[in-house]
Amino acid sequence: MQNKVVKINEACQTIQNGETVAIGGLTIHRKPMSFIHELIRSGKKELHLLTLGGSIDVDLLIAAGSIDRIDAAYVGLEILGFAPNFRKAVEGRVIEFNEHTEYSIMAGLEANLIEAEFIPSKLLIGTDILKSLNYKTFRSPITDDLLVAYPRICPDVAIIHVQRCDEYGNCQINGINAIDLLLAKSSRRVIVTTEKILPTEDFMSVPSSTNLPSTFVDTVVESPFGAHPTSCFPHYTYDLWHLLHYMESSKKGKTENYIKQHITDLDSFEGYLNLVKDDVKRVTVRES
């Protein structure tokens, strides 16, 4: 096992314009926000984004002009409503949106994992979602039933925020898991951002809690509060106030100001945390 710890800007430099970037977490839960900020700060372009359910992560990257295609089963801010820049960009055809379902993403990643061209399934036959995805159907060589060929999805790099890991990338993901393990297994490279880096001995006492092992991880970045304003159980819950503020400024067409003030005018995510320290404090849960 080798030490994989680098600084966030070093990890970000490994991402090339035009690559397919898979984002972990789900909607407003455990999104790698510090890395999203870094992608924007470093001016990445033409990225293809893949995520099961996106929210402010996707919306910010769209507003910053960092991506030209997004594959997701959902992009919205849960109980708060629409993701404003996502909606505008898709309606105005500024970016390409492939609307998936949970299964179409999971099947595509599974196919990649076992190095198959596709995975066959009957799911989604008859729906317009399948038509829009433009997936091919064929007759089963065994039963002659109609099947969908779910083609492999091959992310170049997965970005996953975790609660804790060691310097080798042995990770304990807590709370909602979504498809992060599948993303890590099926992506070419895996960058983990983590609330804390802990000694490996801490993981040896509870090995069954290591649900993302170092064997799938390439890079580790320490990033406390790195998921804010999304949640990171048990440290902090999602910051619905901040998300509302973000939506409010975006509705007025001022996302550019938000990005300037919270990301590009600052040197680092620490600067952002300092700027919104009252917000962060409000959603931080005291450890008992």
């Binding site: 089963a73 919205g76 629409f82 949106f97 379902t101 299964y103």
Partner: peptide, 25 residues
């Protein structure tokens, strides 16, 4: 839960997540 309207003018919704996968099952 995908989109409202015609081909020319569409209102984009957040998406149906897993509804289409399982509704028919």
């Amino acid at each position: 839960n995908s989109l409202i309207g015609s081909d020319i003018s569409k209102l984009r919704l957040p998406g149906g997540f897993g509804i289409a996968d399982v509704a028919a099952l």
